[in-house]
Simulated assay, not measured.
Amino acid sequence: MSSATDRLSTVTGRLDQSLQPLADGFNRLVGDYVGELNGLQFALVFGSLAAVLTAPFWGTFGLVRAMTVAAIWAIFAMSWDIQSGYTGYISFGHSVLSGAAAYTTAMLVHNVDPELSMAITIPVSILAALVVGLLIALPSLRLSGPYFSLITFVAVLIFYRLIPSFSAYTGGETGIQSVEVFTYDPIARYYYMIVPMLVIAVVLTVIARSNIGLILVSIRENEAAVNAAGIDATKFKIFSFALSSIPMGIGGVLLVHFTGGVDPTTFIVVDRSIEMIAMAVLGGMSSILGPLGGAFFLIVLRDYILTDLAGLSSPARWTIFWGLVLAVLVFVREGLFRKLWHTLERYGGGQP
């Protein structure tokens, strides 16, 4: 066993050394903003990026479609993480934010003008997500303990119950199915989702690595100490929720233009929020790229491997989905991708 470990260390060490010049160049350019990489971590990040950017040219139709959906859920998972993963204030209501954006788009098209330009509907919908986020954050983030989580959970229930009450505008339980899709071309549709996801990943990573991210983590670790240092923790908690609301709104807009419609079951129910949490937990909370990896892993597993390749029924797929999340919670609490990252750090000897 020790001999095998030594051989692995030798191989990975040589690979790390061969890639280190490239990693050093990357570190000099942007290391201060997104974190420094060793050779092995550089290979993981840019190998994954190359695979994602070229997927339509080597993947099957089913795989590309699953990765298209995964890109949207990766936005949701990263958005949840910058708020809940970093501050420790767990939200069960983030589906309300994406749902607010999606419903705003659909209602503008359905009730105002079917020909309304996306140049109008998209920014208005993202603004709606931000407004809803602030309506939740302003009263709830002044509380501590489990009360914040309970308020976000209740927010989902309220939003869900309001939809049938205004069915003339929202379409009720069946929703609105008259939203224009971006495109039916699977390759173009893929890049419509992937490019915003990558931009959001970079922006949130930079913010998470900044002093703001440090304060958010400090709130999670010891909020009283943050306040004692003269920093208004509540202000930063509200900021993190508002920050989270913007990419959630973007993801909601992407999803409604991907599906061509909106309904409460697909967009609002608390299950959607819990799925975002599951992706962040599996990938590794408070890391941004961990939830991104978790989203791709779970969606591709559920929608492609277990569905197209294995042909399993929906109950079986969901059982495996949640069983895997449970196993990670028990055996790899830091998350699969954070575990992988730290392993590459150890074998390569670089800095995370």
Rank of each mutant, 00 (worst) to 15 (best):
S218E: 09
S218L: 07
I219Q: 00
I219S: 02
I219W: 02
R220P: 01
N222I: 02
N222F: 06
N222H: 06
E223L: 09
A224C: 11
A225N: 02
A225Q: 05
A225F: 04
V226D: 02
V226N: 04
N227S: 15
N227V: 12
A228F: 15
A228W: 13
A228S: 14
A229T: 09
G230K: 10
G230S: 13
G230E: 14
I231C: 01
A233K: 04
A233Q: 06
A233N: 10
T234V: 15
T234R: 12
K235C: 05
K235A: 14
F236E: 07
K237L: 13
I238W: 04
I238H: 04
F239G: 05
F239S: 04
F241L: 15
F241H: 14
L243H: 00
S244T: 13
S244N: 09
S244H: 11
S244Y: 11
S245V: 04
I246D: 10
I246P: 11
I246G: 08
P247H: 03
M248T: 13
M248D: 10
G249L: 12
G249Y: 12
G249T: 13
G249M: 11
I250N: 04
G251T: 12
G252H: 14
G252V: 14
G252Y: 14
V253D: 08
V253P: 06
V253M: 00
V253F: 07
V253E: 01
L254G: 09
L254F: 13
L254D: 11
L254Y: 13
L254T: 12
L254H: 10
L255S: 00
L255D: 01
L255I: 02
L255A: 04
H257M: 14
F258Q: 07
F258W: 13
T259M: 13
T259W: 08
T259G: 05
V262Y: 01
D263H: 04
D263Q: 09
P264A: 05
P264H: 04
T265L: 14
T266V: 12
T266C: 05
F267C: 01
I268H: 00
V269N: 05
V269W: 03
V269P: 00
V270L: 12
V270W: 15
V270P: 11
V270H: 10
R272A: 13
I274W: 08
I274M: 15
I274C: 07
M276H: 15
A278T: 12
M279V: 02
M279I: 05
A280G: 11
A280M: 00
A280N: 00
V281H: 03
L282S: 07
L282Q: 03
L282P: 05
G283F: 06
G284S: 09
G284R: 08
M285R: 14
M285H: 12
M285A: 13
S287W: 06
S287T: 14
I288N: 07
I288G: 07
L289A: 05
L289T: 11
L289I: 08
L289P: 02
L289Y: 06
G290K: 07
G290D: 09
G290Q: 09
P291K: 07
P291S: 10
P291T: 12
L292D: 12
G293N: 03
G294P: 01
A295F: 13
A295C: 09
A295Q: 07
F296N: 07
L298K: 01
L298D: 03
L298F: 06
L298N: 00
I299S: 00
V300S: 02
V300I: 11
L301G: 02
R302D: 10
D303T: 04
D303G: 01
Y304I: 11
Y304V: 08
Y304N: 09
Y304F: 15
